[in-house]
Amino acid sequence: MQSIIIDLFQKPGQYKKVAGFILVALLAAFPYIYFNNYYLHIAILVGIFVILSLSLNLITGFTGQLCLGHAAFYGVGAYVGALLMKNLQMNFFLALIVSFLVTGLFGLLLGIPTLRLRGDYLAIVTLGFGEIVRLVFINWEEVTNGPMGLRSIPAPSIMGFVLKERYMFYYLILIMVLLVLFLMNRLINSGFGMAMQTIKADEIAAESIGIYPVKYKLIAFILSSGLAGVAGCFYASYVSYISPTTFVYNTSVTILAMVVLGGLGSLAGSVIGAAVLTLIPEVLRFISDYRMLLFGALMVLMMIFKPEGFWGVSKRVKNIYKLKAGRRHHERDIKSQ
């Protein structure tokens, strides 16, 4: 037994799997360790924000396109999901897929005109887009019920079994987060993902090796907004009530802060960033008046002293593409050492 453990820890990459497995097991056991609705609620919020920050990381962290309107995609997903489930009695999982597609379409619509823009110009346009979407939520009363928002959005159900307990939502979001992480990990460590990252680094150099930036930017926008839509759809079903006040500029900024403080271009960073920034305001509740003040100061301090974030790209595994490509290489290398 001992030798197996030692063996596991000696192979590079293996111990990560073990650590990951233990972490997932702990997360799965969480509702049994702390069965407390408040903790579960916070954990579910963390899950939602993990998906949001992972998705934003796809545009901003990997492809290098600054986006300050992510809350709009989150909102579109929430409204689309809510309306489908409420008015058409559509199944949650189907609504999730439709939300992904509709929000992805919005991402494409925003992506096309912004292809020529960069940096701050892109920031203000995405910000303006977010504002316009918010105004539509408020003013298109026939559909969105205006500032009052939409109430009694049904909970998800799987073949007649309704997920109405909080811990069920917890497991649902846990599975969703793991699935997103799994797919994102595959994506960013692929040739496709590397091509995306060249656009962030240097667009002209990327073109000089045959990469067409337009394609990758648009796909990043579509996937990113689609994922934010999925998070929104889940959120709508979870809280059963949505209103325009959730999907505001501040939410966009918070998501961006999660990505940046966690570490641009790092999946682990997004997870950590989302967890930390969701927890900080909760932990600081006892000094509730000052918490946002501290939060602002923390953002500044972090940028001064640790601009690459909690888990920056320097921690990434080098040549991971090669490691993933072939066991054969890998084993050969180990033997030769």
Binding site: A257, V260, L261, G296, V300, P307
Partner: peptide, 16 residues
């Protein structure tokens, strides 16, 4: 981007 985030931090600080 770092300065942008810091500026957003300043903005949150001042508002609060």
């Amino acid at each position: 981007l770092s300065i942008l985030i810091a500026a957003l931090g300043v903005s949150i600080f001042l508002e609060n």
